[in-house]
Amino acid sequence: MKPLIIDNKEISNRLFIGTGKFSSKNIIPDVINSSGIQVITVALRRVDFDADDENILKHVPKHCILMPNTSGARNADEAVRIARLARATGCGNWIKIEVINDNKYLLPDNAETIKATRVLVEDGFVVLPYMSPDLMAARKLVEAGAAAIMPLGSPIGTNRGLKTKELVRILIEEIKLPIIVDAGIGKPSEAAEAMEMGASAVLVNTAIATASDPVKMAEAFSQAVKAGRTAFISGMPETSLTAGASSPLTGFLR
């Protein structure tokens, strides 16, 4: 199967994962290695000088592509500031822009996201913006130079699946960049559904991190993403309201 290519990097595993909410960070290398995960996202936060100085990067195998996110940003300026700090760590120039100023549903602010994308592309970042699936906003992100578009399936952490299905479908049809469904995917079947529609990848965090067995759950998601992709490139058959026999309609025993 052809790999997904972003920033000239070949990504053969189209399941991206987030590293939050794991009960123990020590399990993250097993999650990544057992499923061959390549792209992972991390957040940037103030060091807590009164607590243990845990280093998430020690749990991330060297082969992984790190896609820091700008979580915590409430507007474009904050996202740009976080992105530049993330790059100063020396861990690459990929950035998942997240601009959120809605506390109940954590829905992204598309207008601010577009602004931040323009600035960061100009500044040499590989920008993957998280967005509410809206065709016009997605077109502006394309114009701004985004490397991929990351529409949400449903609000972050809800595990409600692909509630935005029709809008995501339109993005897949109309936008020539990779569409990576991010947020809300709760079950492997929902990840498969996104991939069957032609999504280029899926990002999952909560559903894997909070499973009883995150390693096995990541494997299940990885298999589902692969199955969905294989189905998409095999040409999904059309649906019909009436039956169509699969056996010959002649030679019946009467």
Partner: peptide, 12 residues
């Protein structure tokens, strides 16, 4: 002064 580091996180 702000001193920051990467932590586990998916979104928000």
């Amino acid at each position: 002064l702000e001193v920051l580091k990467f932590v586990g996180g998916g979104s928000q």
